[in-house]
Simulated scan of single mutants.
Amino acid sequence: MSANHHYSIQTASIVLACAVLASCSSAINPVNWVTPYKVDVIQGNFISSEQVEQLRPGMSRDQVRAVLGTPLMASLFHADRWDYVFTLKRQGVDSQTYKYTVFFNGDQLERFAGDAMPSEAEFIAKLDNKRKLGKVPPLEATEEQLKAAEKPSAAKPAAGSAAAVAAPPASPQTTVYPPLESPKQ
């Protein structure tokens, strides 16, 4: 068998192995087992349905800014229009974009329109990323825990008692350590 024939068989085997690996489904392909972490990208002003409910025609620009925040886009050519745009990009989920526009007549809010905005609870539920870290402990103390915390310990006298005033403070024990450096000769 000649050397050229040996190299052509080796090359054909490598090409065939690559083709077989490339044709495997994503479940079998080891390249797809590890995916890089991709950060959620949140851009713009999120406006909740609760904020939209607070808008009333006749509000001043400052009042609208207090409710919705500073607009993402305020054009010099459209001074009576503020655009609020919010985009959420997450790994494995289609990009979501919400737009809301408020129109002014002078300094007064004339009208407002845009996409149906989610409530704050709905938005937070969208951010939930299926990773459950365990049950959240209760953040309130029970009545028994509050009563136990109120009781002074028997070893410690009350602040105004004679035993607390008469007893001198305990002196801490001092420990002597050798010097860090050797004495100079």
Rank of each mutant, 00 (worst) to 15 (best):
M1P: 05
S8V: 09
A12M: 08
V20L: 14
S23I: 00
S23V: 09
S26W: 05
N32Q: 07
W33G: 00
V34K: 09
T35G: 07
P36I: 10
P36D: 15
Y37A: 07
I42K: 13
I42M: 12
Q43L: 09
E50T: 04
E50A: 14
V52F: 03
V52C: 02
V52T: 08
E53M: 05
E53H: 03
E53R: 10
L55Y: 04
Q63E: 15
R65G: 07
L68D: 03
L72T: 07
M73D: 07
A74M: 00
F77H: 12
A79M: 10
D83P: 02
F86M: 03
Q91L: 00
Q91H: 11
G92R: 04
D94K: 06
Q96D: 01
Y98K: 11
Y98H: 09
T101V: 10
V102G: 04
F103H: 03
F103P: 02
F103C: 02
F104R: 02
N105K: 01
G106P: 09
L109G: 01
A116Y: 02
M117H: 02
E120A: 10
E120L: 13
E120W: 14
I124H: 11
A125T: 03
D128G: 10
N129K: 13
R131H: 11
L133F: 11
L133G: 04
P137W: 07
P137Q: 13
L139M: 15
E140Y: 14
E140W: 10
E144A: 11
A155M: 09
A155P: 00
G160K: 15
A163M: 12
A166D: 05
A167Q: 15
A170E: 14
V176D: 08
Y177I: 01
P179I: 06
L180D: 06
K184S: 10
